[in-house]
Design a protein around this nucleic acid. Sequence first.
DNA 1: CGCTCTATTGATAAACCTCAAATACAGTGG
DNA 2: CCACTGTATTTGAGGTTTATCAATAGAGCG
Lengths: 226, 226
Amino acid sequence: MLISVEKTEIFESLSSPQFATLIKKGQQIILQPKSILFHQDDLAERCFMVNRGRLKLTMLSEQGKEVILRYLSSGELAAAIAVLRNQTYPVTAECVDETEVIGWDKPTIVALMHQYPAIAINLLGIVFDRIDDLQHRYLEMCSEHVNQRIARSLLRLMRRAGIKTPEGIHIDIPLSRQNIADYCGTTLSTVSRTLSIWEKKDWIKSGREKIIIKDPHALVLFAEGV
Amino acid sequence: MLISVEKTEIFESLSSPQFATLIKKGQQIILQPKSILFHQDDLAERCFMVNRGRLKLTMLSEQGKEVILRYLSSGELAAAIAVLRNQTYPVTAECVDETEVIGWDKPTIVALMHQYPAIAINLLGIVFDRIDDLQHRYLEMCSEHVNQRIARSLLRLMRRAGIKTPEGIHIDIPLSRQNIADYCGTTLSTVSRTLSIWEKKDWIKSGREKIIIKDPHALVLFAEGV
DNA sequence: CGCTCTATTGATAAACCTCAAATACAGTGG
DNA sequence: CCACTGTATTTGAGGTTTATCAATAGAGCG
């Protein structure tokens, strides 16, 4: 298995032999695009680390509207805290590309945490980032207009999955207008209209499920209401 | 100090002597209503447990709009994860009533976590609840109409701070229309209008900074879009 | 009783969604 | 290489929701 300590967020302060033990105790799973790793309201029996590919984490409202919470890439964890509780987890994890994950069941991960307290403490750091991200997005949802939120969403996705190209920074996730709408709580039409305007201003370049950001600075200013 | 293990969320699986040690290592602080325990973008140098009274956790948007993240009551923790990172924490904690907290500085809390791994693991459980709450509210913000969100907010506050009275369930937090608006991302006028309607339907009874819920079931049905 | 803070309510405007039709694009099989 | 098919995207018209502004009424306090 091609897993390095460096690319993981959870095992930062562990030694290599400790890390090897952890991976050995987990189970490798390979999934096809669009398959579901775990489903909303499943009992959280295992937690996972993405090793290759990407997961899309979503929630479904009672009216059936899908909301995207986050995209996870290599080294990131899913259901890591949920597994510690004997509860269901109201989130669905769907593969965007072909995706490889390592899974640990509850007894294993709990035992590992007791054996290496650093894991739990690292996990707290990771969770802090999640809360921070969620709180900021919650703040934006409460206080900003749709197209500001779209700008911030593109910038956020760019920071997490951006690849430099001659044309600009390419967001390396297949993102439809609908996906962007689900990510920032609006509709396909509104996203499409907004992106059209920005494309005319040469701030972005977009295609079918593809976004390239040509002028991040303009988007930042726009998001800040300038 | 009047602190019991039972009423705290963090120290659940600790023995009483262990618990006593923890409290002894902390610092007791008593604050007047409206005073600020920590301010948005302060460096998180201590974490706190509320022992008496209530804290209001808020964030401020770039345009100056206040958003209420949560009200904390006895036994709940503030800045508990932020303190583990050497970072600022974008949240303000303001006292609603006269409030007593216990504070621990970073070296102390880190040492305690290494000494008693159960603390870090309990903390993960608490943090899970926070994330769960935030995710649900984020979902609601993304997918529901204002008055559905107001209904859910009242129900949520009722569950966390409700007191049974002959008239109905009283939310034991001084809540102005503006507070409710800040809690669910809308405006004072909209909240006032909505509550007026519900008062006429006899679902609630409200006064100056006071809400009594007379028919929770009606609100639940309304929130679910029935 | 007057002062201040909170709440109510109306009128108006802006933001945004919904619905719908047309167009562009990628992949497939002939 | 081209037509075909299923998505994805664009764009318009119209309506709903909700914010904004503003003026009035009510509650609590010294």
